Simulated scan of single mutants.
Amino acid sequence: MPRLILLCGLPGSGKTTLAKRLAAEIPAVRLCPDEWMADLGIDLFDEQTRDRLERRFWEHAQDLLGLGRSVILEFGFWARSERDEKRSGARALGVAVELHYLAAPIDELCRRLEARNAEGRPGTVPISRESLAEYATVFQAPDADELGLFDEPPACRRG
């Protein structure tokens, strides 16, 4: 059965690492706006383009789910409303929806971002501690009640 998997977390929380692992294990189609924007030479901070790309990815994800393919959306999902929208949309298609919330303290996120930037990985931009602290003030972390609205991963992937 196809599944929609949402990865939620701030920069440096490990979304891409988890998404790549899950995509190979399940298998699933992984949609990552950062990678696409970088490949197309688009400024990763161009919010208008990011919004358009994420909307198009969501349309594509629904098509893939309808065809029986599992999909991983690596958007960050900083707002509860975004998570609710995707959960409701996928459930309307009869698809299970997982939410993976990746959290880490700001110091750890900064350490990971510094290491990632030092590697010079494509599709990454330097993010300052100040920016990360600002992002943390607008990020709406899912609470236990919200997490309970999502499906558990299959037993073969738990643990």
Score class of each variant (00 low, 15 high):
Ala92Ile: 03
Lys86Met: 12
Glu54Trp: 07
Asp43Asn: 15
Asp43Thr: 09
Arg69Met: 08
Asp43Phe: 10
Gly89Pro: 03
Glu85Met: 11
Ala61Gly: 05
Arg87Lys: 12
Ile42Phe: 09
Leu73His: 04
Gln62Asn: 09
Gly68Ser: 06
Leu40Ser: 14
Asp63Gly: 04
Glu25Tyr: 01
Leu64Phe: 06
Ser70Pro: 03
Gln62Tyr: 08
Cys32Gln: 04
Leu67Pro: 00
Gly76Ser: 12
Met37Trp: 06
Arg56Asp: 14
Leu73Phe: 11
Met37Tyr: 09
Ile72Trp: 01
Trp58Gln: 04
Arg87Leu: 10
Phe45Trp: 11
Glu35Ile: 09
Gly76His: 02
Phe45Tyr: 12
Arg50Gly: 05
Phe57Thr: 07
Cys32His: 01
Gly89Asp: 06
Gly89Trp: 01
Ala90Met: 04
Val95Phe: 02
Leu31Ala: 03
Gln62Ile: 02
Gly76Gln: 02
Arg56Tyr: 11
Arg30Lys: 08
Glu47Gln: 13
Gly94His: 06
Glu35Phe: 05
Ala28Asn: 04
Ser81Pro: 03
Arg52Pro: 02
Phe77Tyr: 15
Leu44Phe: 09
Leu73Lys: 02
Arg83Trp: 06
Asp39Ile: 03
Phe77Lys: 02
Glu35Cys: 05
Asp43Ser: 14
Gly89Gln: 03
Ile42Arg: 10
Leu65Arg: 00
Glu47Trp: 04
Arg52Val: 08
Glu85Thr: 12
Gly41Trp: 10
Glu47Ser: 14
Ala79Cys: 08
Arg83Tyr: 07
